[in-house]
Amino acid sequence: MNIFRLSGDVCHLIAIIILFLKIWRSKSCAGISGKSQVLFALVFTTRYLDLFTSYISAYNTVMKVVYLLLAYSTVGLIFFRFRNSYDSESDSFRVEFLLVPVAGLSFLENYAFTPLEILWTFSIYLESVAILPQLFMITKTGEAESITAHYLLFLGLYRALYLANWLWRFHTEGFYDQIAVVSGVVQTIFYCDFFYLYFTRVLRGSGKMSLP
């Protein structure tokens, strides 16, 4: 554990909590891609199956359980409790275009051809693209509420801090997880355009992030 990894995990947690509280307090999931949230729930589910097979630390177990609970609670708010506010028309990204290649790639490029490893690899690849339905929705509607933008900012910070974590671990331990690093770089690149918009529009601007 190093400071980059810890702050990355905390940013990830803050992002998930921001989104959950935004929906809970406003009783609305307007502007939120339910598809991205289902993909994230699927990411956590397929990655954290090792909860049943290997114990790493209390921190590791607690964080995994919290991420899972929050992910499923958020999906529950969007598709059940506040489903009337769900904008399915704008959430029109075709997730099969992500799921099929990601599933195929996880069978081809993994560390070991075992069910748990393939599912872990699937979760890593899927996480790198799971935000695309949300970014697509923002592009389609042309704007995002600032709170949604804060959510995306923390999610992007989490990725960027994990890159720093991997550089640090490579430097200090010689640790190098190729699948996670390559996917993590791809994932972070998706946020770069958003980071630019966030700093030029949300921080200077009027509460909403409009796209050009």
Binding site: H12, D177, Q178
Partner: peptide, 10 residues
């Protein structure tokens, strides 16, 4: 071979 024995990251 398997490079990563245990996935300790979240």
């Amino acid at each position: 071979g398997t490079l990563i024995e245990v996935h300790d990251e979240l």
